[in-house]
């Protein structure tokens, strides 16, 4: 299997880069919460800000902006489509 695209968590993504969600590393509560905002495997996410320390990450998903706490952002794994 070819593995050309790099996979990172949303917390580690660069500011302004876009990725496709490949998995959510969390329990049902967490995936349920993400589902409300349409953050599910396959969804495309663009990172809007690069917080200080462990601040919340702001992403754009399905044409809406969502602020996600850093701990949660680390559980959303994406493959980077555009840096």
């Amino acid at each position: 299997m070819e593995k050309s695209k790099k996979t990172v968590s949303v917390a580690e993504m660069g500011k302004g880069s876009t990725g496709r969600v490949i998995r959510l590393d969390g329990g049902q509560g967490f995936t349920g919460k993400m589902d409300c905002m349409g953050i599910i495997p396959g969804a495309v996410i663009t990172k809007v800000n690069q917080p200080f320390f462990k601040g919340p990450v702001v992403v754009k998903c399905r044409n809406a902006q969502v602020a996600i706490g850093n701990g949660m952002a680390r559980k959303i794994i994406v493959e980077v489509l555009k840096d």
Binding site: K33, M37, P56, V58, A64, Q65, V66, A67, I68, G69, N70, G71, M72
Partner: peptide
């Protein structure tokens, strides 16, 4: 404390 998870309206 739970983490922040909110929609940012335009």
């Amino acid at each position: 404390t739970p983490e922040l998870f909110i929609e940012i309206p335009p």
